[in-house]
Design a protein around this nucleic acid. Structure first.
Lengths: 216, 216
DNA sequence: CAATCAATCCAGTAATTGTTAGAATGTACA
DNA sequence: TGTACATTCTAACAATTACTGGATTGATTG
């Protein structure tokens, strides 16, 4: 049956549409941003450092792969993940890449040296400490992202406001800062800032996507 | 910091290597074949209906993304998955695609009409029936694949030998046939053959990768 | 050692994709 | 109604990728 070949080719071709959607670095960055919550094209473009035209083109690809949906609100178009499984997929993709690619492991060290990052196995104990108030879990992303989803017990102080609001934080307990995930530099900057001011600050690698908390 | 942009770009670039590896239909088919066990280039090429040159080129991409490993044995080079997480990734990718892409759902109906396929929730009850011997679970893949990994209680009769060995199967109990996964046509053909000879035959969609049984 | 076989490497072409610039759409607001 | 703004669409070009044919490597076999 030559026909069987044609059927099979069609099936893999469809699955490959997903693969193609995640084969571009910029599209991955857009997906990670969308894991933090709904955003307009303009915001997505700005936060991923590309032009709006290019962002629009990439978002079109993602939409055609049905990985994202859009919603119009006045002049703006808001993009969001089509399904929370897309966030799970992003997490699996990047964690597989971190497992398999030595180059990526090396590059990640530039963001957070091993001793200062908490490993995933610390999750329960971190939450226990946070519940008891022994540590402060700090969300340094823009406030809209915090409102969309955040870690349990987390407090929101966006990095941009941190310098001005630093007095809100206690000096006698460790501050555990997190942001969008392992490739986001906000938490690193926050930790550097806090340490410079005498705080005991730690950098949590994972964000809401890695914790499985993304809401759509 | 412009430097931050460069670091981030590098990180997403690395993750995108994984995406690029799974952005081609043929590479996906090769991955699925490798989920069934180690294979030579020649076998991979034949089973995916492409030339050895092209198979070699695609396998090179997969190897450079560290998704597969190779082993030399005399004149032959055997490829295998680098990690069983690669199989999990393949399963997640295709099941996400099945969720999100209506076209794929439609195309899948050509292989197995809804009533004759067993859904994943039937797993435990299927295994219970298989243990008691109320149904026969039949692996119709080539025997090497069966030897590499197979479903619990499964019996091996490769599709090619099924016609000649059909008498080994009981007529008084349902036969549940499976093959490489949802995109493989072996089980469908087996079911058609069995039904034509008066057997009660069912087509199980999932293969060893979907059951999480892949060994590397 | 020559011959054979499996697999890869290399070069070239056709097709696809990323990116940018310019025109067009659709909504809000004066 | 006209203007401003966010976004998309179209067209174009450069860069990348898929595939093919011919030459090459490495291992086996006579």
């Amino acid at each position: 049956m030559k026909n069987a070949r044609i059927v099979k080719d069609g099936l893999y071709e469809q699955v490959a549409r997903m693969g193609k959607a995640v084969s571009s670095p910029k599209r991955l960055e857009l997906i990670e941003l969308l894991c933090q919550g709904e955003k307009t094209v303009e915001r997505l473009a700005r936060e991923s450092s590309i032009s709006m035209k290019l962002a629009s083109a990439h978002l079109r690809e993602l939409r055609e792969a049905h990985l994202v949906d859009t919603r119009r609100d006045g002049k703006n178009i808001h993009y969001r993940l089509a399904d929370s499984r897309v966030a799970d997929f992003w997490v699996m993709l990047h964690s597989l890449a971190e497992d398999r690619l030595a180059e990526l492991q090396v590059a990640l060290k530039q963001i957070a040296a091993s001793p200062e990052e908490l490993v995933p196995s610390d999750r329960e104990s971190l939450m226990k400490s946070a519940r008891k108030g022994e540590v402060v879990v700090l969300d340094v992303r823009p406030v809209e992202e915090y409102l969309s989803a955040h870690l349990p017990f987390a407090r929101s102080i966006p990095l941009e406001e941190l310098q001005g609001r630093i007095a809100e934080l206690p000096l006698d307990r460790p501050i555990v800062a997190y942001c969008r995930g392992p490739y986001c530099l906000l938490a690193k900057d926050a930790v550097d800032l806090l340490r410079g001011q005498g705080y005991e600050a730690l950098h949590l690698r994972d964000g809401v996507a890695e914790w499985g908390l993304v809401s759509v």
